[in-house]
Every structure is written in structure tokens, then in C-alpha cells.
């Protein structure tokens, strides 16, 4: 079943067109990644889906219902939760309060979900009474993901979960992301700069450049493409000289 389907989305920052007609699909139970350089429009796409920005044109369909232009709280209510870039935890609230904020739009008992989050991130349980501002970057990222899970989303959108994390912590976070998807069946849309780990974790991927999708396919197929290898995986086919400054022309195939 298609969870999310985006069609010809155009979003502007004032006069600047950040998304120039993006169409993507996310099926139930998959992790879909969006690769792209800085300024390609990845975060804009996430924000537009989450309702933080209004699209100029195009449709966003979530579980069959149009959601483009809805207010963010409504979008969360429908079942989309965004783990924003740079974590954005509430520093003066305790960890548990942060998590409860994530479940704010839901009625009923949150304790089941709290247990689930604590099970995946035991360190959060240990420190649940402390202010979130005292957590390390990696722990804050865990908290942000946990907070995202508290609304029991049908689609979890992760915006650069590896931002500012050490390689080891990145591995750990992505391990948990993969487990959440496998064991809990959480459908995810993942924006990531670290193409290596994103392609390892995701089932499918899109490449976004200058606000347009230029390439799409299963992760292993993307990882095998010459363009992806050179521009996203940093393969250094340095040749004879041991260094290369010029770039091959992108063909996206």
C-alpha cells in the first residue's frame, strides 16, 4: 500500500523556487531515502510534507487523503511525524517530558509507547528525569527519534539523523533505525548526507538535485551507479596522478 505519494510539488522561498516539481512514493513498511547535496531541497521537501511550508503547486496524498497545505498539528494527527534536522529537543524539559510532548496530539495512555522507546534507547530511561539539554548529541538524536515515535506515526520522517555525530554513533543510530523498521514495521522517509549509510539502510532511494528528482531506484542499484559513486559515495578513481580535481559529467543512469 502506498503510504505517501507526492506529485509535482513546487515550493518557494519568496521568489526562489526550492522544489521544481518533485514526485515521490513511499510504500508501507519501506525505508525510502532522499539523497542530495546541500541546497538540493531535501529539507524543504520534508517541511512541505510536514505542513511547515505550503506548496505553491502539487499534491501530497497520505493514505489516500490529500494533506497538502494542512497545518502541522493536523499532519501529525494524520500520522506523519518529523524528526527535524539538528534534533531540536526542548532543552529545559526533562527527557520524559520531551517524549510526552511527542505524544501530545494523542489521546489516551502513553506508557506503552514510552516503554517501547525506552526499550530501543535504554540510555533515555536511565536519564529520564534529567533536562534534555544535558544530553550528548547522540543521545539528543535518540531522544528526537523517540519523541517522533511517541505519536505512533504511520510515517516517520528523519531529517539527517547523522548530523554532527561520530561515525560510531551514526552506525548505532542507523542500526536502531533499521531495527525499528524491521521489528516495528515503521515506514520511513530518510534524508541523509551520508549516502553510504543511507543506501545501506534504505530499500529505495531518490536523488534530488536543484529541486528536481534526477534518479531513482532500489538502493543497491543506486549504490552501483557511477554517478552516485563519484558524487555521493566519494569513490576516488584518482587514476595515475593519485588526485583528481575534475568531475565527470553527470548522466544519472
Amino acid at each position: 500500500m502506498t503510504v505517501l505519494s507526492v506529485r509535482n510539488l513546487e515550493t518557494f522561498y519568496g521568489a526562489i523556487m526550492a522544489l521544481r516539481g518533485v514526485s515521490i512514493d513511499v510504500e508501507e513498511g519501506e525505508i525510502v531515502t532522499i539523497l542530495g547535496a546541500n541546497g538540493a531541497g531535501k529539507t524543504t521537501l520534508m517541511k512541505t510534507i510536514a505542513g511547515l511550508m505550503d506548496p505553491e503547486k502539487g499534491q501530497i496524498t497520505f493514505l489516500g487523503d490529500p494533506i497538502a497545505g494542512l497545518d502541522p498539528d493536523r499532519v501529525v494527527g494524520r500520522g506523519i511525524s518529523l524528526v527535524p534536522e539538528g534534533r531540536e529537543v526542548f532543552p529545559y524539559l526533562s527527557i520524559e517530558e520531551n517524549l510526552r510532548m511527542g505524544g501530545f496530539t494523542r489521546k489516551g495512555d502513553l506508557s506503552g509507547d514510552l516503554d517501547l522507546v525506552y526499550q530501543y534507547f535504554p540510555i533515555l530511561k536511565e536519564r529520564r528525569r534529567q533536562a534534555a539539554g544535558f544530553l550528548s548529541g547522540g543521545q539528543q538524536q535518540m531522544l528526537a527519534i523517540g519523541r517522533g515515535l511517541m505519536s505512533e506515526p504511520k510515517l516517520l520522517m528523519l531529517d539527517e539523523p547523522s548530523l554532527g555525530l561520530s561515525p560510531l554513533l551514526t552506525q548505532e543510530i542507523f542500526g536502531i533505525i533499521a531495527r525499528l523498521n524491521r521489528d516495528e514495521g515503521v515506514t520511513m522517509l530518510l534524508v541523509e548526507q551520508n549516502a553510504h549509510i543511507a543506501l545501506e539502510t534504505a530499500h529505495r532511494g531518490y536523488v534530488l538535485e536543484m529541486g528536481r528528482i534526477v534518479m531513482t531506484g532500489p538502493s543497491d542499484q543506486l549504490a552501483a551507479s557511477d554517478d552516485i559513486q563519484e558524487f555521493y559515495l566519494g569513490r576516488t578513481d584518482a587514476g595515475e596522478r593519485g588526485q583528481k580535481r575534475w568531475k565527470r559529467r553527470k548522466t544519472w543512469r
Binding site: 506529485r7 509535482n8 513546487e10 516539481g21 502539487g58 531518490y206 531513482t216 544519472w252
Partner: peptide, 9 residues
């Protein structure tokens, strides 16, 4: 794009 025809690549 002008006619809202979906395409990715």
C-alpha cells in the same frame, strides 16, 4: 511540470 504530469527521473 506545467500540466502537473508526475515524473521523477
Amino acid at each position: 511540470q506545467d500540466r502537473q504530469i508526475p515524473f521523477s527521473d
